[in-house]
Amino acid sequence: MTIVNDPAAEPGIRGWLTDPEPTSRTQARIGNLYRGWRSFVRNPLAMVGFTIVVLLLLAAAFAPWLATHNPIVGGDLRTQRLLPPGDEFWLGTDDQARDIYSRLVYGSRLTLLVVVLVTVIAMPIGLLVGTVAGYMGGWIDALLMRITDIFLAFPRLVLALAFVAALGPGIENAIIAIAITAWPPYARIARAETLTVRNSDFIAAVQLQGASSGRIIWKHIVPLCLSSVIVRVTLDMAGIILTAAGLGFLGLGAQPPLPEWGAMIASGRRYIVDQWWVATMPGVAIFVVSLGFNLLGDGLRDVLDPKAAK
């Protein structure tokens, strides 16, 4: 093999990162990450998405410092109610004389909470179901996949609605309901990935060493499924945010006075004609954040899963 432009000749940290013959496993791994990052950075739209998501994280982390007013307790109801955007209230005030900008900043915490918790609940379920079904095969596979298909056949929002109806409104129950409806696609993907590696030599080698099924699935199959599942989860995050906002809008998600963006749109709905900013601003926030996750997901897919990108 001849390398025309030997990157190893490059000195310093970059040379170490792009070394075609890494000397340790860690170096190979970090080098891979670095190459992924390089191609990710070259994609401007993906960088826009990445920036939006980073800004969301920063807003959530530094909400008390970024907010200019109290997000829950409003100002003077006689003079500061439904004020248009201006110097004092950057995005105006709502019907409780609360600063909309500050509420949006604090609301970013709720949005992140929903996204993170739904992912933390749904991704392991999907991975477990998919890898076990794919690796075990036979009747276990048939049973697990039928259950997955049944859940896939449901309309997501309507099912979440019904679950919230049973559990009672509130942000925790909304999260549970969304997670219950979110895992089936991950199980499908994990199973497909498992089927492609199940009969490969390295799995046979581990089997011959006497590893248990649980160990093989956890240590050798799950890591291989992770990247495609992560891509799918990132692409799903916008959908999760939109569903949570929809539940909030219907009064079934976060309850007042929590500054959840969907619920804020619902409370601003009455004033849409004369005080358009009350319902519009939270919608802009939802839109921008969903857009960010969509762009980030597209970019990640191009890096992690080049087969699917087209």
Binding site: L242, A245, G262, G283, I286, F287
Partner: peptide, 16 residues
């Protein structure tokens, strides 16, 4: 992108 990212109820309100 807008279709995948915008909340449908918000677009409805804006249209109204």
């Amino acid at each position: 992108l807008v279709g995948y990212s915008a909340p449908i109820f918000w677009l409805g309100l804006l249209a109204l």
